[in-house]
Design a protein around this nucleic acid. Sequence first.
DNA 1: TGTGAAAGGCGTACAGC
DNA 2: GCTGTACGCCTTTCACA
Lengths: 157, 157
Amino acid sequence: MEKRMIHLDETDLAILELLQEDARITNVALANQLKMAPSAMLERVRKLEEKGVVKGYSAAIDPLAVNRELLVFIFIKTKDSFANDKSARALAAIPQVMEVHHIAGDDCYLVKARLSGPMELMEMKRSKFSKIPNIISMRTTIVLETVKESSHISIEK
Amino acid sequence: MEKRMIHLDETDLAILELLQEDARITNVALANQLKMAPSAMLERVRKLEEKGVVKGYSAAIDPLAVNRELLVFIFIKTKDSFANDKSARALAAIPQVMEVHHIAGDDCYLVKARLSGPMELMEMKRSKFSKIPNIISMRTTIVLETVKESSHISIEK
DNA sequence: TGTGAAAGGCGTACAGC
DNA sequence: GCTGTACGCCTTTCACA
């Protein structure tokens, strides 16, 4: 199931840039900035959504304001075979887990999670991670300070 | 300069949840779902923005569609003192670098970056990282597959 | 903080190019 | 794929509870 190659022109890339900067920009403002009619802009944005180029729109929340001050990265070794991603899916299902990456090298998975504090981290390991049978070992790295955290993908070319 | 504690009620948390799920939801739809008048909803959202609880709104873009298929994590040791975050700011200024975290343990910084491929990774190291004088060493971990990648912060309590 | 009404602007569909 | 028009709904403000 190969993903069909998608061609994006300069206008599409400019739209993506503006939508990344402010997802709540109005269609008219978008059209004005790129000197197009609103109806044409609407059609382009719709197509970008349909093709899956735009996967969604999200508000960025200050973690401090919602009591999610502790950010951790956890390296997890499993005895999953290559064809089996059961552990990965179990990890991804945990609400506090924001990212699960299969990485090259010794460690199998890299998990990024946001929690209220150390107590919730222990609780998560006890009640969730311990139920995932294929996990062999874990190494947890605690973030002391976040200098930059953005989901903005730099676009060019 | 202590950050003033912010109190968020149930309605605020519900708003944040809905805005994280779809930042382009209309104010009226938001008001209907939480059974409020649109004008009252508008005021609440404004205040959440002003207080910095909502830091912004962003579109999630498929990295594949914009030629940013390679995701890497780089562990960087520096000889920065605790009071000096010059290296961190230099790293954060690189467009392909999405995250810079100061982490506990041996490594000083954890950097997350998105690139078109290995060539751009080498190019970034050569032209950007090598110009940051305090860097002592780097260890790069390549992501083979991303199972989950979300900026959605799980809210409760 | 909340509601409701009023005005202007925006989203959206559609016809035509 | 883009433009322009037209209608209905949404955003926003303001007076008031």
